[in-house]
């Protein structure tokens, strides 16, 4: 039992780690970063150490805010669903939304807010087009996996999308994609990424 839990925790940690690394690789050293839905602040901690960023997290959950404070991370308690009114236009180099896009209700609004406040946006999300998910749906069930570890009735994910969905979203919303990386178990996927990639990382900016 414990071994199973540990294996799950390790797998979650590994996927988290690869998410962190993928983001850090896309952030200029010394940049200013706003991390939306920053959780316990460990991504910002990682970016501070690896990229010497000046970072702030935005988080709504009380327990996460406390964890951020414990981890020595600057955190602003705020509800992303109400936008980023407390942040000036163009006030950050990067605004990051790591593994949170799919759990947002006002998805369009937050992506536009990211590009108002940040020079560039970085999002990461679980690719719903990943073969495992497709297979489970073909088998007649909602997908449950490492990347999507929830049952249909308790999932916080309300706006799941595929890589192609997000690209289509960008093209209809005046967003230029600067970089796209697709990963499975931390390794880049180049062959039919919408089928073989479990994690998508996009860096983008507003079309001038």
């Amino acid at each position: 039992m414990n071994a199973t839990i540990n294996a799950t925790v390790n797998a979650t940690e590994r996927s988290r780690r690869s998410d962190f690394e993928a983001i850090a690789a896309r952030v200029e050293p010394g940049a200013s970063v706003l991390d939306l839905g920053c959780g316990d602040g460990l991504l910002l901690d990682y970016l501070k150490q690896q990229r010497a960023v000046r970072g702030y997290g935005v988080e709504i959950d009380d327990a996460n805010v406390l964890d951020c404070v414990k981890n020595g991370i600057n955190v602003i308690q705020s509800d992303l669903e109400r936008g980023l009114a407390g942040f000036d236009a163009g006030s950050f180099d990067y605004v990051i939304l790591s593994q949170t896009l799919q759990a947002m209700r006002h998805t369009e609004a937050i992506v536009m807010e990211m590009l108002r406040v940040g020079r560039q946006g970085i999002v990461t999300f679980p690719n719903f087009g990943y073969w495992e998910a497709r297979l489970q749906i073909m088998a007649g069930r909602m997908p449950v996996s490492k990347a999507l570890p929830y049952q249909w009735y308790d999932t916080p994910n309300v706006h799941l999308c595929t890589i192609h969905d997000f690209e289509a979203f960008c093209s209809t919303h005046g967003i230029r994609i600067l970089e796209r990386v697709v990963l499975t178990d931390g390794r880049p996927v180049t062959f039919i990424p919408n089928l073989f990639g479990s994690l998508a990382v996009f860096r983008f900016e507003k079309l001038k």
Partner: peptide, 21 residues
């Protein structure tokens, strides 16, 4: 309070802000 937080953010000061329900 958020006015103060914003002023601190504008200065890139170290700040954490909690809004306690």
């Amino acid at each position: 309070a958020r006015e103060i937080v914003k002023a601190l953010l504008d200065n890139r000061a170290d700040v954490s802000y909690a809004e306690i329900d």
